[in-house]
Design a protein around this nucleic acid. Structure first.
Lengths: 259, 259
DNA sequence: AGGTGTGAAGTTTTTCACAGCC
DNA sequence: GGCTGTGAAAAACTTCACACCT
């Protein structure tokens, strides 16, 4: 169905730009690291460096949350950690179900960043009856048949799909029907969901393709010499900026996890 | 070296917007599916629906590549597949090394979407000597000591880091020193790289946090009473992408590990 | 009729740069 | 002196809407 549609109409007064929301987790991670080293305060410059963005952007982002800094000094680390956590809704417990316990699902289940960020793996679900009962990351895998029951009993509102592409839409439909309203999709397919349900997608190969695009640009630039195939249109290559990014792609949001 | 090239700003630039580049893999995936079903042509409307974007955006995106459609008809599927592949640099072979063969690394190694898109897993590398020689996805894992040799011998320019956060920067430094100029980072840490090296990151917990933010908002803003108009959450929709990247392309994701 | 290609308008995001407070 | 907070300007991106080709 339609995929089109824009974004939010800005919920009432609290209008934090989407781009800012996408960076809050980044800041939070950097701040958490500082907190663990017992650093009391940071300047926008330092924090920005740690998060991989520029300081003006960071200050602007924080300005949407409120005035939590002190001129001439910087930001109080603990305080900011709390404010951002609260803004992101991480001060509450979010039960999450992971469907599809293959290598990726297992990697996700083992991901430590979950628990420490307000997320709790409520259940691991797989369609393979042979997996049932088998523990992964200390949690016994349950069969797909249990899906609805688990979601309802635990009040799960966030689901993670790590199944093969072919099963994703079906799993998605069941999750939504059972009450899930936010889905993180790792399957390389476009999911159709009813209005009111959020879907975020993470695709391993898309990122690589984007890298290939830039890589090609670096290498080529003239020695293209692709005279093999038919297609017309001169081989006008070109260079585009990216301007030799040194660090992180500040504008992105993708996500997956570490091993 | 890289920075050398005396290129002028060039007024008529062929620079494709970053946002467009990030969507090309999506279109490519949708087109590939159509191609497999032997569909000869598609309209921007149909293709947009399949890719999860709106048609105006899609047409605009394609306009940066050239005029590959036919008015009144649509786009030739095969031709577009070729053009986009070429634009992304997927018509050539990209050897890739994956460092860190835990669950995630294994999931990546098994990911079918790579091979079918111009990527070739040149090597799997892990720091654990016990893993050496063990085959994952049919490829024997090699020890980190071999890293430099592999990169140089195979002319690898793209590296994937799937190690724990603590090892990421070190691995990154070695990759860069050995000649890698594009890195896909799955470790939840900001990598420092010299100019000229591209880094894209994928972080699971960040995506979940963004979902939590929106989820929290849904819960908290429930309009009571059914006045008759759309009550809560105005018009939200589905898939979204953010700034730089997030969608997902093809192939199939991990797989359910049979016993 | 049907559908692309694209200026122009509209929106969001980033960057600048500096007033204002510590 | 140092650093935040933020209007204002700039840039990037999206959407509109329609001329124009088939």
């Amino acid at each position: 169905m339609a995929t089109g549609r824009a974004h939010r109409p800005a919920t009432r007064s609290r209008g934090i730009p989407e781009a800012t929301v996408a960076r809050l987790p980044l800041y939070l991670r950097a701040l958490t690291a500082l907190s663990e080293r017992s650093v009391p305060t940071v300047s926008s410059e330092e924090l920005a460096a740690a998060a991989g963005v520029n300081s003006a952007k960071l200050r602007k982002d924080f300005s949407y949350l409120g005035s939590y800094g002190t001129r001439g000094v910087g930001y109080d680390v603990e305080y900011l950690v709390y404010q951002i956590s609260r803004e992101l809704g991480l001060t509450q417990d979010w039960p999450v179900v992971i469907v599809g316990i293959g290598n990726l699902g297992a990697a996700l289940a083992n991901y430590g960043g979950f628990a420490s960020r307000g997320f709790r793996v409520a259940a691991l679900i797989d369609a393979d009856p042979g997996m049932a009962g088998k523990p992964v990351a200390g949690i016994p895998v349950q069969h797909t048949d249990e899906l609805e029951k688990i979601i309802q009993d635990d009040g799960v509102s966030i689901g993670v799909i790590a199944t093969p592409a072919g099963a994703a839409q079906q799993v998605c439909d069941r999750l939504v029907a059972a009450g899930v309203t936010s889905i993180l999709n790792f399957a390389p397919t476009v999911l159709n969901v009813p209005e009111g349900v959020d879907v975020r997608k993470v695709d391993l190969s898309i990122e690589l393709q984007i890298l290939a695009f830039h890589e090609q640009r670096k290498a080529g630039e003239d020695a293209a010499g692709d005279a093999g195939v038919v297609p017309p249109v001169a081989a006008r290559k070109q260079q585009h900026s990216t301007g030799s990014a040194d660090q992180g792609p500040d504008g992105d949001v993708p996500a997956v996890m570490p091993a």
